[in-house]
């Protein structure tokens, strides 16, 4: 059988706990009270933005472990990633927590790609407790990809605000009463020639639509099988485009579609098109979605995290922005 990136998990690994931390600006988010820890200081009491980034990740990991009454010594794998240079914040967080570590990079789609990896390790029987997640820190990421934080440039309505947040999940073998991972789809890198780094939603939308189509047809599912189909950080513009593209494929986009980036900061127009960043999908998937599943509101969800695979170098050299989207299906049995 040729899988073509389609994965089915027979043992249905579970997400036993989640840990989400966020920066001070994220208090404006309508989901703020669901986050486990919100810092009052954007540098989380450390000296630099990058240290703060690592600190948020560490704290999120510790929270996710403590919820299953574990310490870092009990965990088998740490699968985390971020967007800053060679993922140094994640590397430093991994040094501190001391769990066997695999750095994961799928840009803003890292939340799902790491979750898929954790599910695979668990499925193979090699892992009983794996931590998977992603984080982003506004100042560190903006400075890397765009301009210095204090630089005045007029952002268009399509631009998105990188969130300061870290979200991780503890993946264990199947546990009753917890959301379990049933199947997943690894996306293909898609590039439809978008070059504007201030309109990433438009670049990512085709990748999301492609992965959605592949997941539904590949696993023989339909939109109506899900309670919600949530994308990572398309933002208002990207979400509209994605719905149009999915609609063209014949899917009913009227009800079940949600986008974490569009909803992250509520209706606040100061954030323009919405939120983005690796932490955006991680924070919403691991709070809003998991909480609603635990409460029984959602029985079956499809999470599609999207990522723009660009670097400051690539877009300055005039290259287009290749994008990726990974999908994972969670159920409550």
């Amino acid at each position: 059988m040729v899988a073509r990136g389609l994965l089915t998990f027979k043992t249905t690994p579970s997400i036993a706990a989640t840990g989400v931390t966020a920066g001070p600006l994220e208090k404006k988010s309508p989901f703020a009270d669901k986050f486990d820890k919100v810092y009052d200081d954007e540098r989380c009491g450390t000296k630099t933005n990058e240290h703060a980034h690592a600190k948020m990740m560490e704290d999120a990991c510790m929270i996710a472990l403590s919820k299953v009454d574990s310490v870092p010594g009990d965990a088998d794998f740490l699968l985390i990633g971020d967007l800053v240079n060679q993922m140094t914040p994640s590397n430093f967080a991994a040094t501190t927590v001391g769990i066997p570590y695999l750095g994961m990079f799928s840009a803003c789609a890292t939340s799902v790609s790491s979750l898929v990896m954790a599910a695979l390790l668990t499925e193979s029987g090699m892992s009983t407790c794996a931590i998977a997640g992603a984080s982003s820190q506004h100042n560190a990421v903006e400075r890397q990809f765009r301009y210095p934080v204090e630089y005045g440039s007029q952002k268009p309505a399509t631009s998105q605000w990188t969130v300061t947040a870290a979200g991780v999940a503890t993946v264990t073998p199947y546990k009753k009463g917890f959301p379990s991972i049933e199947c997943a789809t690894i996306g293909c890198a898609t590039d439809l020639g978008m070059t504007d780094p201030l309109n990433m939603g438009a670049a990512m939308a085709p990748a999301a639509a492609d992965t959605l189509t592949r997941h539904l047809t590949g696993h023989g599912k339909d939109v109506s099988d899900y309670d919600v189909i949530m994308t990572g950080d398309l933002g208002k513009t990207g979400f509209e485009l994605y719905k149009t593209l999915a609609g063209n494929q014949g899917f009913d986009v009227s009800e079940k579609f949600r986008d974490a980036g569009e909803e992250f900061y509520g209706a606040d127009t100061a954030f323009l098109s919405g939120a983005s960043g690796a932490g955006c999908s991680a924070a919403i998937f691991f709070t809003e979605v998991i909480d609603k599943m635990m409460a029984g509101d959602y029985k079956r969800v499809l999470l599609i995290a999207t990522g723009a695979l660009l670097s400051p170098l690539s877009f300055q050299q005039g290259d287009t922005i290749p994008c990726i989207a990974h999908a994972i299906e969670l159920t409550m049995k």
Binding site: R143, P148, Y151, G152, S153, Q154
Partner: peptide, 30 residues
């Protein structure tokens, strides 16, 4: 300054203050 820039666009970038902002913001950042 970044708030003035979001509001005024080139109105804040073209005057010499915009040049100053570019230098100063980079200095603070690094």
């Amino acid at each position: 300054y970044k708030k003035i820039a979001q509001f005024g666009g080139a109105g804040s970038a073209v005057p010499i203050t915009g040049f100053g902002n570019a230098v100063i913001s980079a200095a603070i950042e690094h």
